[in-house]
Design a protein around this nucleic acid. Structure first.
Lengths: 152, 152
DNA sequence: ATGAATGTCTATCAATTCTATATAGATTGT
DNA sequence: ACAATCTATATAGAATTGATAGACATTCAT
């Protein structure tokens, strides 16, 4: 039931970009340094997020990435699905990657897995990066530590 | 966020054993045939469930496996943890495999992951194999199909 | 124009995990 | 004795994961 490193990094990068929304293109190097993410790995991740329409990019000198939409219109679920695929524990209860299993009609495990899928979706598909930004700010107010990464 | 084949097979075998509770030792071969699980693979799985105290075994001719406790005292969560490890998406929110991460105090992703862990736990740690048996029986009443496997 | 800085794309690699099988051994009932 | 059964550990192949490499295309400042 693990969250992949890819999604972990993606969430952190997305929070970073959300915190710097409307400030122009942010370069991969800046994100990779601030959040301590291997740069080459991050390149692949941001490329995926761009291809699914979550990020926009600008090539060339002074290029970089920025959110394609306002942070309140992007959910954690959307990002995790882009990188890890379905959030459902089994495909026969997935909305985005549904595949029937052989014994679907009588399968009693399916019901439980559906409950889990829905529970995870309730969290991830409701939580936006605007919410995450609010939490970062709260966290910063409480603790006056200078450094903050959005690490897990 | 996938459920492993190991846990999938384990759940099915456990439901089978729960449906045959108090009927003496059940042999691996019977379970593996009925539930269409590779026998050698199932052997390893049942061995693990025995080592954590969920199953009892009897060696030798007429040997086999049976539940170590009543089905209403064994949860799906316990079985899945035995095979897949923690149900939490990241270790820093796991109760059974907790490991701190570097930025725990200020980490904003952690809160979300904690919500997911709790949501999954709410389902898996409440649901017992007695509940699963009830569902199997309901399912059988509704549909008079002869065959029933507890597949996903 | 030129060149340095940046994103794009594809390939590749090493390590790990997952799924499954193999083999040798111990125990039991008849 | 012996066949059936569980025990224990090792191993193999495939898939996945995490990360890196390198050639290429585009842009901006000068």
């Amino acid at each position: 039931m693990k969250l992949s490193k890819k999604s972990d990094y993606a969430l952190r990068a997305m929070i970073y970009l959300s915190m710097h929304h409307k400030k122009g293109a942010i370069q991969i190097k800046e994100i990779s340094t601030s959040e301590r993410i291997p740069q080459k790995f991050l390149e692949n991740i941001l490329l995926i997020l761009r291809k699914v329409g979550i990020l926009n990019s600008k090539i060339g000198l002074k290029g970089g990435y920025e959110l394609a939409r306002s942070p309140d219109l992007i959910t954690l679920g959307e990002v995790i699905r882009a990188l890890d695929g379905a959030i459902a524990p089994v495909d026969c209860v997935s909305k985005t990657s549904y595949r029937p299993c052989s014994e679907e009609v009588t399968c009693v495990i399916r019901g439980v897995m559906m409950d889990i899928r829905n529970a995870i979706s309730d969290v991830l598909d409701r939580m936006t990066f605007a919410d995450m930004c609010s939490r970062v700010k709260e966290s910063l107010e409480k603790k006056e530590t200078g450094v903050l990464t959005y690490a897990i």
